[in-house]
Amino acid sequence: MNLIGFENYLWLGSALFCIGLLGVLVRRNVIILLMCIELMLNASNLLLVVFAKMFGNMNGHIFVFFSMLVAAAEVSVGLALIVLIYRKFRTIDSSFLDKLKG
């Protein structure tokens, strides 16, 4: 099991999280944004599992199952919203979605 050190898992999770965050910050396409958010979520899931393994605590595993379940629901709602946004505004570029700007 210790073929690959815990440290590498931590680097991988952090890298995934940062990639996701960068994607959220720089991209304009709402679908890409959603994908990046998912990436961040999964990065944190991965880290949760790794930490759970590291400290021998099962709570982290349970947590990840819940979070994946919720993520599935969240994606379906998010995609539905994107479809509606596209129908309404004929675009999914987030920089044009500024109707609420004061």
Binding site: L21, V24, L25, V26, R28, S94, S95, D98, L100, K101, G102
Partner: peptide, 12 residues
Amino acid sequence: NGNIEYYLVYLS
């Protein structure tokens, strides 16, 4: 400025 991207940048 009302753009969510900037707010996200500030947040990060």
